[in-house]
């Protein structure tokens, strides 16, 4: 009885912390990237909690709707936030397991994120503006290259989970894979995990509109991809869009962070601290790329994405090979 209560209390605590991280922390990590970028340039920069102040301001502003837009435009921001948060609930952040886990949840993960992208594309098409249409078409065409890569990454992770699928009774699940990973997994499956991590890092940059694929601070309307799609949103709608983007970045970063450093501590707080450090390190990497490189010419992006696809495919192949080698041996 006591043991069950203890387990319940512990799980409740873990879930609360995970929800807190997922819902409250994303703007702070954006603030960290902005601050790092400013310091790298030699400026003082805004405080790291500035995104919270920006969201507060936006939520108090009024809205302006173009007469060309319809219902899709008004529902899209909610859908974007909902999809980002749902995806985040599937990734085990700072905890052993994720709040949502079931067989096949990694497919749901991929497509819930795609749903968010669909919402933003439809909203930008709804405005009837040539610009936003251009941004939507760019986003869609790059997604056509990025989604297969994402899928292969998830397949590779799912295969890894097959080493011991019975631990949680789930197959093809993010929790199922990541909860079983330990630092030693890298020793055995390193050749598969390394290209996977690179491919995932490229996807982090692409999906979250960072340099070298897109410039989140650009004022050049003809070069924008993500930014141009939210040009028409104002006030609380814009707050939701920005918040949804911040959550999405955190979701991707936590996935990569968990793959690179899968160790799980006994103490919940040690887990949280490690998580924050991992995301901090990844934010520094994102900033380093942002500050060290210029943005790519638009026609070179498919080439890089193809490279990421090849890395992800390589990861799947190596994973299959390794599974063949290790099948039958105690894991």
């Amino acid at each position: 009885m006591m043991a069950e209560f203890a387990w319940l209390a512990e799980t409740l605590m873990q879930r609360t912390i995970q929800m807190f991280i997922l819902i409250v922390l994303p703007p702070m990590f954006i603030g960290i990237i902005v601050k790092l970028k400013a310091v790298a340039a030699g400026r003082k920069g805004p405080p790291i909690w500035q995104p919270y102040l920006d969201l507060a301001r936006l939520s108090r502003k009024g809205v302006v709707y173009s007469t060309a837009t319809g219902q899709v435009f008004r529902w899209a921001p909610l859908l974007v936030v909902a999809s980002s948060i749902t995806a985040g609930l599937i990734v085990p952040m700072a905890g052993f397991t994720a709040p949502i886990h079931f067989s096949g949840d990694l497919i749901v993960f991929a497509y819930v994120l795609a749903l968010g992208r669909l919402a933003i594309i439809l909203a930008s098409l709804d405005t009837g503006s040539a610009f936003e249409g251009m941004g939507a078409s760019r986003e869609a065409s790059f997604a056509a290259l990025a989604e297969p890569t994402m899928f292969l990454i998830l397949v590779s992770l799912g295969l890894l989970g097959h080493a011991d699928p019975h631990k949680f009774g789930v197959e093809w699940s993010l929790t199922g894979t990541l909860a079983q990973m330990e630092m030693i997994t890298w020793a055995h499956y390193g050749p598969a995990l390394l290209p996977l991590s690179f491919a995932l890092f490229v996807l982090i940059l692409l999906e979250n509109s960072r340099v070298p694929f897109d410039d989140p601070t650009t004022h050049l309307e003809l070069t924008m991809i993500h930014e141009v799609m939210i040009l028409d949103h104002s006030g609380p709608d814009l707050a939701l869009m920005e918040y949804g983007a911040a959550v999405k970045l955190l979701v991707f970063q936590s996935l990569l962070g968990r793959i690179i450093f899968p160790h799980h501590f006994e103490s919940q707080w040690a887990d949280v601290v490690t998580f924050v450090i991992k995301i901090g390190v990844l934010s520094v990497c994102v900033t380093a790329v942002e500050v060290g490189m210029a943005r790519l010419k638009m026609n070179r992006i498919p080439g890089i994405l193809l490279g990421a696809f090849i890395l992800a495919a390589l990861s799947v192949v190596v994973m299959l090979v390794e599974m063949g080698e290790f099948r039958g041996l105690p894991s």
Binding site: A40, A41, G42, R43, L220, E290, R295
Partner: peptide, 16 residues
């Protein structure tokens, strides 16, 4: 020009 291609070091230094 550097800022337009998102190469921040040059954009910052030349701006100053």
């Amino acid at each position: 020009l550097a800022g337009d291609v998102a190469y921040w070091p040059s954009a910052a230094y030349f701006g100053r």
